[in-house]
Amino acid sequence: MARNPARPLSPHLTIWRWGPHMLVSILHRATGTALALGGGILFIWWLTALAGGEASYARFIDLMTSDATGRLNLIPGLVLFGLTWSFFQHMSTGIRHLLLDTGAGYELKINKMGAVATLVVSTTLTVLVWGAILMRGH
């Protein structure tokens, strides 16, 4: 079947100028996936350790919380920090979408400000939560 050259092509990503609203849309999907997979695996691991008895649970807690010097383990710490940020980003974007569903916030400037606000709020809440967690240990 031949294409009609008078008919316009559908828009695609190469013709759109990237903005925060596009980034937040993609991040919403990515954070949802990270929470479902990463959070699910971590939750199942935690439940398995809990069901395995006191020694198994103690090993899990030691691995996820601190090393021999009492500092947070790097890899588990990054995973937990990432899941925390993913949670707050996904929640913030979900609230933004809830507001958009009411018909508010579709003006370009307000839409971009709302998208940037989700990034600022999620990062701020993540830093506050982890600041409280890390300061509690000292």
Rank of each mutant, 00 (worst) to 15 (best):
F60C: 02
H138R: 12
G137F: 11
L42G: 00
G40K: 00
G19E: 12
F88C: 07
A51V: 00
N73Q: 06
A104M: 13
P5N: 12
G19V: 11
A58C: 02
S10H: 14
T124Q: 03
G94P: 10
T124P: 01
G32H: 01
R29D: 11
R29E: 13
H90D: 09
S92F: 05
H21Y: 13
S56C: 03
L125F: 00
M113T: 12
V121G: 01
L125K: 00
A55D: 11
H90R: 09
L100D: 07
T126F: 01
W85Q: 07
V79F: 09
W18T: 15
G52Y: 02
V127H: 01
L23D: 11
T123K: 04
Y57G: 04
L99D: 10
H12Q: 11
H28I: 07
R136C: 04
Q89C: 11
G70H: 06
G38L: 01
G53P: 01
N111S: 12
M91N: 10
W130A: 00
N111E: 11
W85D: 06
R59T: 05
K112V: 13
Y57F: 15
A2R: 15
A55H: 07
P5I: 09
T14W: 12
R136P: 02
V79G: 08
Y106R: 12
W85H: 10
F81N: 13
L125V: 02
I44K: 08
S10D: 15
L78R: 09
S56H: 02
I75Y: 08
T102Y: 04
R71D: 12
G53F: 04
A132F: 04
S56E: 04
L50C: 04
L9P: 12
A49Y: 02
F88T: 07
L80Y: 06
G77C: 08
H21I: 13
P8C: 07
A36E: 06
M1Y: 14
V24F: 07
M64D: 00
A115Y: 03
L100P: 05
L63Q: 09
I44R: 06
D101I: 11
L13W: 15
L78A: 13
H12F: 12
S56P: 01
V116P: 01
T93K: 10
A49K: 00
T65G: 04
N4E: 14
A51S: 02
I44E: 06
L119C: 04
G40T: 00
A115E: 03
W85Y: 10
S92L: 10
V127Y: 01
S122C: 01
G32C: 03
A6E: 15
L13E: 14
G39M: 00
F81K: 11
L83E: 07
S122Y: 00
V127A: 06
A68E: 08
M135G: 09
V121M: 04
R71V: 07
L108G: 13
W85V: 05
A68T: 07
